[in-house]
Design a protein around this nucleic acid. Structure first.
Lengths: 198, 198, 198, 198
DNA sequence: CATGAATGAGGCTTCATTCAT
DNA sequence: TATGAATGAAGCCTCATTCAT
């Protein structure tokens, strides 16, 4: 079924362009016309490959999420207990990841009035938490965690998610104030604090 | 003599309704028409009190920021070193404050493609950081900080801001998962960790 | 009845400002608000002194026509057969008269779709023709016309009106190309030609 | 393959309808809605073929000017020294040409506050003058001009333009008073006078 | 008399979407 | 499959006008 692949690849291509556009001008100024122009296709491109503009945006959101997920998976594939590695993979340390976060900011704005977008966001957050819990358990198994009877992986995972999101928001709107080193300093500091707290 | 109207009060009134609407349906579905209907005025009311829809939104953002600021000031007015108090004042613990955060999420989305909104966001974040540094210095002066020679107030303030923002994002889209107690637990935990780290 | 005078003077004042505004930005960009601002009154000024914006404009037109008429009358008061004088009084030779013509251009635009304005314009043109015929007859009586049995005053008046209007249109949109001397040259030339044609 | 449309032809079509509408109700009462209704299209048609309503109007003006130009060119194509013919082609002798002049009256009103429209008007007038000078030179070459050493073609051209515009203004608002014969009488008379004046 | 707050109609424009080709 | 012409709904905004004060 060669057509199917082509079709899906085209969806990816379009949604990637949409992501770039969103990061540049914001989601509400991304028009179908502009998107088509940037993609080099006709305006009917959306109707062709997506039921709706809304579906295109949802797909774009999911594609961005999956892209981040893949970066994390790559890290965990090498070492399943690399906490710092997988958190680093999520931080807006370079242009590409900063753009990814811009997409998320845009979708947070949309998710306010849109139950399906909100659910998607909730799902993704829960997925990340489960992932972090898994990593923490792997660390525990490999003895990387300080001996700590009462350690609560779920709470720690929540703390890490708080870190990632809170950091990204600040970096997103003031990148000059947040060079990579400062982000890493904050990351390491929080990891150290969190892992040593019962 | 015509009826005299307190322009600024009317602006506040309209922007408050705008904030509620934004929190309900998202910023991009807030139309002037809908806003006028909710306010009980004609559509021309916006043009009457604001140069622009954009100006109305900017004003709404600033009003929300000021409202939060006033809550914090009230706390610090009573005790200038009440760190937990002023952070608590910012958390989305009740309906009103949750709505406030929804407004901010909406504006983050807008700030992506809008330099002026981004600058406003940057300014607000910097202001909050300065405020936190002031509180930390007050704590230090009143001996509330553990003796810690290398304590860095700026870094700590950044950590608290990360906490607040990161928490709010999670609460915002999954409030059921984040009852007040869990938010407070996370807050106290992070405060304890941060203050005891050099 | 002092009030009545005041009222009428105010109407004159407002319409003069309207004329200036029209000459500056064109009739369709003259808003009640702008007019009120320029006059230093409130927006209700029009409703107060005129039934309508349209009535204000009509009054403005008539006031401009009367002003031109008065200039002509002043000339003819001194010498009732001063043809060149009264035509000169109508030409856009200075800033004030150029502005007057701008008002007329504006009203020609309005008169297209407005029967009352068109009628007004027709009336004014007919009045000017009658005036010119009177002057020509006076010239004839005072022996200023070359002996010319078949001279047709009506036809000559039409020719002079054609001259005045045709000249004004050209001057109006290219004043640099039409200094006063050139206008006067054209005027004298046409007068000479016309009076010497049977 | 989608249906291919001749963009320029469609623009012509729309602007012709606009011209008719302007001549009927005046330029300021020509709304996009009314225009679309008259054209049998949706309101978006204007945005489709013109950047702006203003651009549509400018195009309409230019189209009217070109239409007149073509009539003149047709005359001069047959005989390049047919002065009366080309002036006749410009006079509002029939319904079509009267409508054309109404469009120009409307644009004179707009040109007051609009530098680009004023420039366009200036350009057209200058073009007409050049054309007339060319015709006069052709007449001179073919011996159609009375032997007249000091004859000034530029001045004569100005006089003819004055005639055309001045006549059109009078005809435009009182067509009943200006049947074709009277217009032609005035035209012939002025031609005779002008050509015999040094 | 005079104000200016408030209105509602209507203008232009933009946008996602559809449909014939 | 892909196009782009065409749509109609809806958005923001401006304007002349009204009305309580």
């Amino acid at each position: 079924m060669p057509r199917q692949v082509d079709h899906d690849a085209r969806r990816q291509e379009v949604s990637l362009i949409a992501a770039k556009l969103i990061a540049q001008v914001g989601v509400e100024r991304v028009t179908v016309r502009e998107l088509a122009r940037a993609a080099g296709y006709s305006t009917a491109i959306v109707s062709h490959y997506f039921a709706d503009k809304r579906q295109l945006l949802l797909f774009t959101y999911q594609a961005a999420a999956q892209s981040a997920q893949e970066r994390v998976d790559a890290v965990l594939g090498r070492s399943p207990d690399d906490l710092e590695g997988c958190l680093t993979a999520l931080l807006p340390l370079d242009e590409e990841r900063r753009r990814e976060w811009q997409v998320w900011f845009a979708f947070w704005g949309m998710a306010i009035g849109d139950a399906e977008f909100a659910a998607e966001q909730r799902r993704r957050m829960a997925g990340s938490r489960r992932m972090l819990v898994r990593v923490l358990r792997a660390m525990s198994a490999s003895g990387k965690l300080p001996p700590n009877g009462d350690f609560d992986p779920d709470l720690a995972a929540r703390q890490f998610l708080t870190l990632i999101n809170g950091l990204a928001v600040q970096v997103g709107f003031d990148p000059d104030d947040w060079p990579a080193e400062r982000q890493m300093l904050m990351l390491k500091r929080t990891i150290a604090q969190t892992l040593s707290t019962p």
